[in-house]
């Protein structure tokens, strides 16, 4: 592999680097003690993901069994409250519900007006026919 070509540092980059180096800072002993003391006092927080993974397998089983038991109890309770057969009302005779009209009516009584009407129409028809014959001279 050929050596990586290093870009020559331009004037501005060099100046910025040199000027940054001119900023002289030192950690005071007091700050050093302060930082160390606060680091000792602090405790790293645990990763929530890791905490979940750290739960024992028994926890999973226990929660599964509890869930299944609760579901079974609910189902049993619902089934226990529902009766085996649906409640049906006692059969009621139809006649009691709505009394039927008397069907034994004379047929002649029902057809009589129509018969009369027919006869009247036939007689009107005959009269009209005779009148037409007379008019045309037959």
């Amino acid at each position: 592999m050929p050596p990586r070509k290093v870009k020559p540092m331009d004037k501005l980059s060099k100046r910025l680097r040199d000027d940054a180096a001119c900023i002289d800072v030192a950690i005071s002993e007091e700050l050093d003690h302060r930082i160390e003391a606060s680091l000792r006092a602090a405790t790293p927080e645990t990763d929530p993901g890791r905490a979940r993974a750290a739960r024992p397998a028994l926890f999973w089983w226990a929660s599964t069994i509890t869930g299944v038991a609760a579901a079974a109890a609910v189902i049993a309770l619902l089934n226990w409250q529902v009766p085996d057969e649906p409640v049906r009302p006692p059969p009621v005779p139809i006649a009691e519900l709505a009394p039927l009209p008397d069907l034994n009516v004379e047929a002649a009584m029902l057809t009589a007006p129509l018969q009369q009407e027919l006869e009247d129409l036939q007689s009107d028809f005959k009269k009209a026919e005779e009148k037409v014959r007379r008019d045309i001279g037959l």
Partner: peptide, 18 residues
């Protein structure tokens, strides 16, 4: 600047898991 440095290092230590 010193206070922020201290807070930064403590935060980094506390949340090292992230």
């Amino acid at each position: 600047a010193e206070d922020v440095l201290q807070d930064t290092l403590i935060a980094a230590y506390r949340y090292i898991h992230s």
